[in-house]
Amino acid sequence: MTSNSLALPAPRSRALLKHPIIARYAPIATMVAALVAIWYIAAVAMNWSLVRDGFEREETTYATTDVLLGTMEAERPLLPAPHQVLEAFYDGVFGYPPLAPRSLVYHALVTLSATLLGFFLGALFGVVLALLIVHSRVLKRGLLPWIICSQMVPVLALAPIFIVVLGALGLHGLLPKSIISAYLCFFPVAIGMVKGFTSPEPLQLELMRTWSATPRQVLWKLRWPASVPYLFTSLKVAVSISLVGAIVAELPTGAEAGIGARLLSGSYYGQTIQLWAALVAAAVLASALIGVIGLIERAVARRMGAR
């Protein structure tokens, strides 16, 4: 009896570990904690000499703990500590009215508008390309090499050319950025949708043939629904790439607004904390975009009978 009552606590704590919420989030939380710890250590190591030199330049006496504390709150650290970045991010998001030029929300919105337009254009272009490729063998041979080549040129090199050419055509602001973003993000959509449009089984295609369906009916009733899983997978890749495209497009234009502009001015003036806060904003934005597509995907999949 006693042994039995003694043995009780152990299974209970194991049961706690098996609790769905803990089972789901414990690995992520552990990972984040480990990364934050490494980040702090790196911040101390990288800022150490910077802070120590500061003390020596001012010829004050200092203890090791002073340096240690100094690495946590340097004004322009080599690597800002996580809490500094979070503070700057929080301040950037909530410290100003959303449309103030110093607000991260404002800059994120500027980049978001270019991202969304570019994503829309790029996804549309990618689907159209995939349609052309699936329906014509000549186009498949003619187009595919160019599509692949297009992605070999670094976009950072192309972006200024785009900006200059489009600027000469009288296009400024949102559209050139979106076009650069579209240029990057059509690729995964085109490749994914070629795969998706050709994914119906031979039997399904032959059934359509026995019913003498028109090519258009085969497209809308068979190829299109069969490619939906491929569409969402490639859209998730495309949306994050299109954000990168929009940010990159802001760099050579010397844009005064947008996450790219924040990154650029941060690096000009050695505002590393601002730089990192802008990076966090970009990451949050990308996760949110992917999350939205994931939600739409789930809703569509449920309607299409996913188990």
Partner: peptide, 18 residues
């Protein structure tokens, strides 16, 4: 075939899963 004169049943059901 164009007149839809026959119905064809394959070995696999070949239903459209969606």
């Amino acid at each position: 075939r164009l007149a839809r004169a026959y119905g064809y049943v394959f070995q696999a059901p070949a239903l459209f899963p969606w």
